[in-house]
Design a protein around this nucleic acid. Structure first.
Lengths: 123, 123
DNA sequence: ACGTAGTAACTACAAGTGTAAACTAAGAGG
DNA sequence: CCTCTTAGTTTACACTTGTAGTTACTACGT
């Protein structure tokens, strides 16, 4: 995912399913997505095709049908999009973004603790 | 900006100019954008029109031409987009996102210090 | 009064996104 | 062997985004 490819919102949902469990068939992906979307299987298939076109999803046809799997790791994709997001909306400043997020209403105390820990393990 | 409006990448650049200095004419906006884009003035005008359509930019026609100004504050917009971004890419976990960002190569020590401070002033 | 510069307003158009129907092939079950 | 279910493939279509040309207006300076 070094290439600056754009994964759209909807496509991202499919990637999440695949990251969580690779090598799924179309039907299985549809099943997993039933929960948060009401996309038809052809819709999902279209998006998988686009993701393959973007080189972030691969397919292998073992038996009769394809099984799809991610070609880019979630970590890499997350990092890439996070960086470009921070650049675009916060001039690259992580702290500005965190400040904006923390100023929003509901910050769990846990979240703060975790954050603190991450930063400490970092330096 | 409570409405979940989408401001596209390019539009965002225009908003930034307007946030930095409101009440600019088209020509002035074009001037400010010369630095990082090579958009023609009609292109910019088109985007301003779209932003007005989305209700995030207003115009007042004082003399002969319009002066544009933001109707949504940068803070609000940043918070909105940051929240939706974290939700989409990191399941809402700020710490996950920060971890991803910090694991990227170049983290300035300053950045870390600032972050730490933000978190401390927070609890 | 007239050209010029800056704008407004309208139109355009390709690529990307969201969403899916339709048609087809092919294995699974009876 | 025939039908049903699943999946693959093709085609579609509206909306958004990026990008801009064209045409018409209007104040401003000469």
């Amino acid at each position: 995912m070094n290439n600056a490819l754009k994964i759209s919102d909807s496509e991202w949902k499919i990637m999440k399913v695949l990251w969580q469990e690779p090598h799924l068939s179309l039907g299985e992906i549809v099943g997993k997505l039933k929960a948060d979307t009401s996309w038809s299987s052809t819709t999902i298939r279209t998006m998988i095709g686009r993701l393959m076109g973007k080189g972030v999803v691969g397919a292998d046809k073992s038996h009769n049908n394809f099984r799809f799997f991610p070609l880019a790791s979630q970590k890499d994709c997350q990092q890439t999009v996070a960086e470009s997001f921070v650049d675009r909306a916060f001039e690259g400043s992580i702290s500005l973004m965190v400040a904006a997020l923390l100023s929003g209403k509901k910050i769990h105390q846990d979240e703060l603790a975790e954050l603190k820990q991450i930063i400490e393990t970092m330096e």
